[in-house]
Design a protein around this nucleic acid. Structure first.
Lengths: 225, 225
DNA sequence: AAAGTTAATTATGAATTCATTATTCAGTCA
DNA sequence: TGACTGAATAATGAATTCATAATTAACTTT
């Protein structure tokens, strides 16, 4: 018998926050779309009270927009928002890189090393799925390595808000190659425990991602199907 | 007849989020203190539904802690949390400084210049109240000058969370003098529109504030009254 | 037929009610 | 006396209900 089972029973609204946030991040609920409470209640099998509590939280996180007496809409990620979010994310990653260099122990670095190898393998076999996964794990590990919960929580929120952009614009071969190159450099700086260098390179990595994204979006605008 | 009055009528829960957050930030609700819903409902004159919605938001912002079936407690700002929050705040200020240098127009800089003068005057007349106000206005103006809403919102949240620290430890004369010195340097860098320099100096300013705070708190621990 | 007006419907904000979990307190037994 | 048991009380999580604002539909009028 598992004694811990009875203890961690998250409240309904907490689960709803998670699930709804995922629906938004994974683009199931489309930007600008209305979110009728009734319908969601039915499909999720809960009453309006916990659902509305969850919506309030999502709104404060910026995933939905509430209008008084008009309900909730999924927040749309404008270009301006992207261009505002990435610099903030980049700075946070810079800080994370610096701190991770100081705090990671060799076992943790070894683990990242392995995920890095996985990532390279995924690149060589053109497996985008596996690449994204390994890539995300590496960033996660570095954030965790910073040993700073505040940093982690703000990073997580911002990263989630921008994650949908991945669905909007696909990774170009050129950018992919560049990203791999940047990751190799980052790995070396981490091995050398060059805190300042890793921080700067992570920041740059993120800003380059923004450039690629904006470029891809502009190209998309010109061929709107 | 004012036509806009009927339009901007914030919902009850939004007002409650504001009011409750202020109660926490201004240390009316003490850290660790239980927040009985019933009692708050009575004193605020609202029902539990909007109040609970507000509490959920406050929890996601980190001002209160929710325990299932046990209600809400005001989050206590531990030393560890302070030491985690300040580096993040400092990085955000660094970014703000860099961006502000690029975006502020001369009229806005002139405005900051004036508040800077106010601040110096307050220092000379040992008016802590006026000093804090001018100081806060300057930081606000720089954040706004960054022209980045995402940056601004995250900064605002983090700043609010540590604001209570001001109630915990008073500003020492030594630190005050140092802060003034740092502000003068920042002002010069702003005049020269030295983005990199201003960013670094704002970051340092914030980290020095943390050091002073930690020192003050340690001194307090040794003389617990 | 089109635009404007009013009634009906629907959806939301907030209060209330119900069910379940903690907490308190009295009573029992070692 | 002090620790344990269990009933009584209080507080919370969630569902339901009520009131009001927004939206839709029907109808009028030109």
């Amino acid at each position: 018998m598992n004694l811990t089972d009875s203890i961690k029973r998250p409240t309904l609204h907490e689960e709803l926050v998670e699930r709804l946030r995922n629906l938004v991040v994974e683009d199931v609920l489309k930007p600008g779309e209305k979110v009728p409470e009734k319908q969601l209640c039915d499909s999720l099998g809960v009453s309006r009270t916990p659902l509305r509590e969850a919506l309030k939280v999502l709104a404060s996180e910026g995933f939905v927009v509430l209008q008084a007496n008009r309900g909730a809409r999924v927040a749309s990620v404008t270009r301006e928002e992207l261009e505002n979010t990435f610099p903030v994310l980049a700075t946070l990653e810079q800080l994370a890189g610096e701190l991770a260099c100081q705090h990671l122990d060799s076992a943790e670095i070894e683990l990242i090393e392995r995920r890095h190898a996985d990532m390279l393998k995924a690149y060589k076999s053109h497996d985008r799925q596996a690449y994204f996964k390994a890539n995300q794990d590496i960033h996660q590990a570095l954030i965790r390595g910073a040993r700073n919960d505040i940093l982690a929580s703000h990073h997580k929120l911002l990263a989630a808000r921008v994650r949908r952009a991945r669905f909007m614009a696909n990774l170009s071969d050129e950018r992919w190659a560049q990203a791999i190159y940047e990751h190799k450099a980052m790995m070396e700086l981490l091995r050398a425990r060059n805190a300042d260098g890793l921080g700067k390179s992570m920041k740059l990595h993120m800003m380059n991602k923004l450039s690629a994204l904006v470029k891809a979006l502009e190209a998309e605008d010109e061929t709107p199907r």
